[in-house]
Simulated assay, not measured.
Amino acid sequence: MDIIILDTGCANLSSVKFAIKRLGYNPIITNEYKTVLHAEKIILPGVGTPFAAMSNLKKYKLIDIILNYTKPILGICLGMQLFCAYSEESKNIKNLNIIKYPILSLPKNNLPLPHIGWNKVYSCKKNVLFRNIMDGSRFYFLHQYMLPINKYSILKTDYGCFFSAAFQKKNFFGIQFHPEKSGPLGSQLLKNFLEI
């Protein structure tokens, strides 16, 4: 199976690759158009800004591939946020607009920002991504912007307010936390995605 990790030029790619290799797969890190075009699964990880990531997706001519992709695709952290309409972090940049909701700043509510560390996630609706994972399980977060809960939300978490920890729209899956840094449960989630 051709599993592609999209190289946006601003993501922490190695840890995602190693997490998938531990599951017995051989993912390829690339931004090469023809290789991505034939992927069976795509993972869009993200560390950085929407401006940098969207600029590189445009530069490598990957935007149309993503928008027209019909097989499972997973956005992680910034990758998830890129699936939304726009982000308050880069207000003048249009994101991929897979779901027409904005990414907003996390409210302070007397909590330190960014939101760093382990936090519990809760199911909004049953989903294959969370198979064999107990409700209330902890995953590792590192972010300062969030997707409000909406009709596509499948997981939520609380850090000063409840927000989407994961969503699904058709073949597009997005998760705000980092499964590659979330131990055995993160591995289970990646396994669930790869077996869709």
Rank of each mutant, 00 (worst) to 15 (best):
177 F>E: 09
95 N>Q: 15
171 N>M: 07
135 D>V: 03
174 G>N: 06
45 P>I: 04
7 D>S: 10
41 K>E: 02
48 G>Q: 08
68 N>F: 07
126 K>N: 12
118 W>A: 11
196 I>N: 06
164 S>V: 07
127 N>R: 01
150 N>W: 03
129 L>A: 04
15 S>D: 15
182 S>K: 03
152 Y>H: 15
123 S>Q: 12
79 G>M: 06
160 G>S: 06
149 I>K: 08
41 K>R: 15
118 W>K: 14
2 D>L: 14
129 L>I: 06
36 V>R: 01
56 N>E: 10
130 F>K: 00
131 R>D: 13
123 S>C: 13
112 P>Y: 09
41 K>Y: 13
18 F>H: 11
99 I>Y: 00
104 L>N: 12
31 N>M: 03
67 L>C: 09
35 T>M: 13
2 D>T: 10
73 I>Y: 02
138 R>N: 13
136 G>Y: 10
180 E>Q: 05
24 G>P: 04
6 L>K: 14
147 L>T: 02
109 N>G: 05
105 S>N: 13
168 Q>F: 01
133 I>M: 01
30 T>M: 07
36 V>A: 06
59 K>W: 08
146 M>T: 03
51 F>Y: 14
84 C>F: 13
74 L>G: 04
14 S>T: 12
84 C>W: 12
70 T>Y: 12
154 I>T: 00
83 F>W: 02
92 N>T: 12
10 C>G: 09
48 G>N: 05
90 S>R: 11
71 K>I: 00
31 N>C: 07
115 H>I: 11
169 K>L: 14
83 F>K: 11
56 N>H: 15
40 E>I: 00
107 P>L: 03
49 T>Y: 09
46 G>S: 05
21 K>M: 15
122 Y>Q: 03
141 F>N: 10
14 S>F: 12
85 A>S: 15
138 R>A: 09
40 E>K: 14
61 K>F: 11
45 P>T: 02
139 F>L: 04
174 G>T: 04
155 L>M: 09
160 G>T: 06
54 M>A: 03
134 M>P: 11
55 S>W: 11
43 I>C: 05
181 K>R: 14
132 N>D: 13
41 K>H: 14
141 F>Y: 01
54 M>G: 05
9 G>W: 02
78 L>I: 07
98 I>Y: 00
61 K>P: 03
133 I>C: 09
37 L>A: 07
95 N>C: 14
99 I>S: 08
64 D>V: 00
38 H>S: 11
143 H>S: 00
5 I>A: 10
25 Y>P: 08
13 L>M: 10
159 Y>K: 10
